[in-house]
Design a binder for these strands. Structure first.
Lengths: 217, 217
DNA sequence: CGGAAGGTCCCCCTTTTGGGGGAGGAGGGG
DNA sequence: CCCCTCCTCCCCCAAAAGGGGGACCTTCCG
């Protein structure tokens, strides 16, 4: 008997999974959580073999849950069930120990198959996800140009990304504006960009500053 | 008897809704669609009283379906069931004729209530959604600063947002660089921004250029 | 110990940017 | 018809930005 814990903030999803899994003879849904905060406690109490985990939830999201879970090696097998499959999230989730990463668009029998696979430590991936992993392993380290930057340069780039001028950056980071210029120049050179405007766009793309938080000053 | 059509690309969601609604005596699920493309045909064939519509779907999304549906006034009542509730989408969906806008986190009995309400033309909204609508009606037109801009200025701002310098913009838009400077100055003045970098961030926030398409040149 | 890398600041220089005018032409509405 | 907005380009000018040096310090590592 495979015991399963369902973690998803969507009521209909929980009901649907409970219904689908309940029809299998060898699978038993032992509990469900509507948010990430109570997952750790539920796992400790119920000792499920498999956790079906939603990615996007209010409060503590799936990645946060995985991070805390990763600490203990004897934990349950985790299957991520996501609404939208975003590359970085897939990578991060698997890095953090998830066995399978499925979209909610997946046919239910594949979900059931993933549960059975997880119980014995196997993965079930969709073709797109598998391809993504292959990609990653192959060009394992056409590394992010951003980690060419020194810590100080990264701080300066972050300030640029907020839309600040050199003088403001100097004040914010407690250095002379000549120093800021030095850092700006090496940032542009290292990233192959033409000017600070392109640097700001790059910073936003890299998520150095959230788009809706830039410019707020 | 209220006939319902379920439109959602998530298999588990469809199963869940079918299960939940199937337990009600006065509600009958007459069909389901896994993507937006077949919705129009399904409605024509099944003539449902109520459509439960997912927002994010591959191919044709919920808004696109609503847009096409809006053309015919004698259509079914539409309830949007969204994974993530984003303000602009709520407004747009309701503007396009949706009666209710519920998150999938909503308790299932509220969904059932929304179906019964929709059958007689009523709305069921969550508190947050209701508040949003009130907000909109109240400050009905603290308008977007972006429509202070003339068409030409908007084009220049868009180019800035891509990370281009004045000379490039002049070439791209077929004008002198002095003219570009004039437009840049009035853009900055009208938007109350300090320099082109802030203008680029603003343009990205406004969606003039998609973040992942900026800088690509 | 010597060297490399990072951080800080300085100088000089060119280019770009942005503000302040002005001026002509096209089109639109009172 | 005149006025207004928009688009276009021009000039001058100050500030900012960016490139190219160089200098000094610390820390870390072989």
């Amino acid at each position: 008997m495979i015991s399963v814990l369902i973690v998803d903030d969507h009521d209909v999803v929980r009901q649907g999974l409970r219904f689908v899994l309940g029809q299998e003879d060898d699978i038993e849904v032992v509990g469900e959580c509507a948010d990430g905060a109570r997952v750790l406690a539920a796992i400790a109490a119920l000792r499920p073999d498999v956790v079906l985990l939603d990615m996007v939830m209010p409060g503590k999201d799936g990645l946060a849950v995985l991070r805390e879970l990763g600490a203990e090696p004897e934990g349950p097998a985790v299957i991520v069930l996501a609404s939208l499959v975003e590359d970085e999230q897939v990578i991060e989730a698997i890095r953090l120990g998830a066995l399978s990463y499925l979209a909610k668009t997946t046919a239910v029998d594949r979900v059931v198959a993933a549960v059975r696979a997880a119980a014995v430590g196997d993965s079930v991936l969709e073709p797109g996800t598998a391809a993504l992993l292959v990609q990653r392993v192959r060009r394992n380290r056409r590394r992010n140009p951003i980690d060419l930057l020194t810590p100080r340069e990264l701080q300066v780039l972050t300030e640029i990304t907020r839309g600040r001028a050199n003088a403001e950056i100097a004040r914010a980071l407690g250095m002379g504006r000549e120093t800021v210029k030095t850092h700006v120049s090496s940032v542009l050179a290292k990233l192959g960009l033409a000017d600070r405007t392109q640097a700001a766009i790059f910073g936003l793309q890299q998520g150095l500053v959230r788009l809706d938080e830039a410019l707020d000053t």
